[in-house]
């Protein structure tokens, strides 16, 4: 193979393909956001509109809603490529699969995670969070949502070959999300008590770094199993 195409080019081409496809079909970006908004709306209706109560449970609600709406896009992450055969081409190509997988995960995050991070201030206002907690919410979402994409992609890769993988995938992935949920919500909690929450962010960052390195390997071997 000639070195005409660098690894960087592979990364950008896979990434831009996924993002362009998503932007052509706006619903893929808008639907998880709407879902996020609706889940958040349901809680005050179910629990009651007292501002103090909402403020107390806001971190948990925002994060659970974020988990659920990331799950929505995950099923599509490899499904279309699997169906039209381009996933097989990626596996057969001489380039490392983990790299193209990394690009796909980043694309998934750009499509579902990033809009959530950008919209987070609005959601935080809906839930009556004050400005300190608002910063923490945005920061935890910024570090946490790529982590969700990475872990979720493992589950998506394992179930892509199955007819009805969606529900099974959530069963596989949600228990693995628990540490992210715990640290993210506790960071928001501590920040609303105006304490330093750098520790939780650091742990989230460490988990993201580990996931960045390990998850692509797991995802690519899972994809090889699913496709074969």
């Amino acid at each position: 193979m000639t070195a005409q195409h660098s690894y960087w080019q592979l990364f950008t081409s896979v990434y831009s393909k996924d993002v362009t496809l998503a932007f052509r079909q706006r619903s893929e970006i808008v639907n998880p956001l709407l879902f996020f908004l609706i889940v958040i709306t349901l809680f005050p209706l179910a629990i009651g509109p007292e501002p103090a109560l909402l403020k107390r449970i806001a971190p948990g609600i925002i994060w659970v809603a974020a988990l659920l709406s990331t799950m929505l896009g995950l099923d599509k992450l490899f499904r279309d490529d699997y169906n039209d055969g381009s996933l097989e081409q990626l596996i057969a190509s001489p380039y490392p699969l983990s790299l193209s997988v990394l690009a796909k995960v980043f694309a998934h995050w750009t499509i579902t995670g990033l809009p959530m991070v950008l919209m987070a201030p609005m959601f935080a206002l809906l839930m009556n969070l004050d400005s300190q907690a608002l910063g923490a919410t945005v920061l935890t979402l910024l570090i946490g949502t790529p982590l969700l994409s990475f872990i979720g992609a493992i589950g998506a890769a394992l179930t892509v070959g199955l007819q009805k993988g969606g529900i099974l995938m959530s069963l596989l992935v949600l228990p693995l999300y628990i540490p992210v949920l715990i640290f993210a919500t506790s960071a928001i909690d501590t920040s609303s008590m105006s304490l330093a929450y750098g520790g939780q962010l650091a742990i989230l960052g460490a988990m993201l770094a580990v996931a960045c390195v390990c998850a692509p390997i797991a995802i690519s071997s899972a994809l090889k199993v699913s496709v074969s």
């Binding site: 394992l158 070959g161 199955l162 596989l172 071997s221 899972a222 199993v225 699913s226």
Partner: peptide
């Protein structure tokens, strides 16, 4: 969930 038990085993191992 897998029909083919060979890939089922490998997927379970990865998980």
């Amino acid at each position: 969930a897998f029909e083919d038990k060979k890939s089922a085993g490998r997927a379970a191992c990865i998980l």
